[in-house]
Simulated scan of single mutants.
Amino acid sequence: MASQQPTKSAPASVLTMANPIYRTRRVINAIMLALSLTTLLFGLFWLFWIIATLIIKGGAAMSLTLFTEITPPPGQAGGLLNAILGSVVMAGVGTIIGTPIGILAGTYLAEYGQRGWLAPATRFLNDVLLSAPSIVIGLFIYAVYVYQVGHYSGWAGAIALSILVIPVVVRTTDNMLLLVPNSLREACAALGCPKYRMILLVCYRAARSGMITGVLLAVARISGETAPLLFTALSNQFMSFNMNGPMANLPVVIYQYAASPFKDWNTLAWAGAALITLLVLGINILARSLFRKQ
């Protein structure tokens, strides 16, 4: 008599609410998803509230006059032309000074710093500089430059901003070059390409979008910095492109006008704050768009 094999019934699907493990996981997943969406909406609510408040408060001064006239005395009409141009000049000079230094330092870390203690120490110090309060940078430039020459100047402001640019560019350049596949470097070496040409023609091209993103993020950071400019460039009520003297800039003008008792100055401060916020927001959106193409 043939032995009978025990028959096994087909297992029921585990992906049903009758399964307690699956049911628990579904509940936990729904709770975490709801919490994530809540925090997202919470953050977006404050962001849109800030932007809407700035636009509504500064909308009264958003006109052609804002971009064509200099800062006025109390009780008279005027704009922020000298402050806007001063900020553009100092931010531009600071970016021009800081970007090459940051790119070269980041290139050394990614391409030449595989051995030894110098690269890890540089990365650590760069992270410290990246998180340092901007007022510390302003006080440093005040002590080593402004105090020595005896007056505030646009050059001092630009140097302070360049120090804020450097760690951002160093970090992004280092990270983007490390993402370049080593196979590209090996192919260049197999063809007899010198290392400097490999970096310029292959690595930089492969990491170009990420490096540009780092520069844009650095510009966004320095666009609204007030503390370092208070100790270096200060401000100027008149139109001046003399980098060797005090120069008007948008963050300091906003700080001064917002604290004044004059309503017309308060309105200009709201308009300037809206300009900076929209500029930084636009730069960040542009940087994210470039990063996605990397």
Rank of each mutant, 00 (worst) to 15 (best):
M1G: 15
A2T: 12
Q4W: 09
Q4K: 12
Q5V: 14
Q5K: 15
P6A: 07
P6L: 02
S9Y: 09
V14P: 06
A18K: 08
N19Q: 08
P20Y: 00
P20R: 01
Y22L: 05
T24M: 09
T24W: 03
R26M: 13
R26E: 10
I31T: 14
M32C: 13
L33N: 15
S36T: 15
T38H: 01
G43T: 05
L44R: 01
F45L: 15
L47E: 09
W49M: 12
L54V: 11
I55D: 08
I56K: 14
I56F: 14
K57P: 00
A60S: 14
A61I: 03
L64I: 04
L64F: 05
L66W: 03
L66K: 04
F67K: 02
E69M: 02
P72E: 02
P74M: 09
L81I: 05
V88P: 03
V89L: 04
V89T: 00
A91C: 15
A91P: 11
V93W: 06
P100M: 02
I103N: 05
Y112R: 03
G113T: 12
Q114S: 11
R115W: 00
G116S: 11
W117C: 11
L118R: 04
T122M: 14
R123W: 07
L125P: 07
L129N: 11
L130T: 07
P133Q: 09
S134L: 09
I135C: 13
I135S: 10
I135N: 08
V136G: 08
G138L: 12
L139Q: 04
F140K: 01
F140M: 08
I141Y: 04
A143P: 08
V144A: 06
V144Y: 03
V146A: 09
H151L: 13
Y152P: 00
W155N: 04
G157V: 13
D174F: 07
V180A: 05
S183Y: 07
E186F: 13
E186H: 12
L191T: 06
L191Q: 13
P194M: 08
K195I: 14
K195N: 15
M198T: 15
I199M: 10
V202H: 05
Y204V: 01
Y204I: 01
R205C: 00
A206E: 15
A207V: 02
M211H: 01
G214K: 01
G214V: 00
V215R: 01
L216P: 03
L217Y: 12
A220R: 04
G224W: 05
P228K: 11
L229H: 07
L229R: 03
L230E: 10
F231L: 12
L234S: 09
S235F: 13
F238A: 13
M243L: 12
N244M: 10
M247P: 03
M247E: 01
A248I: 00
V252S: 00
Y255H: 10
A259M: 09
S260L: 02
K263Y: 08
A271S: 10
A271V: 03
L275Q: 02
I283R: 05
R288L: 09
R288E: 13
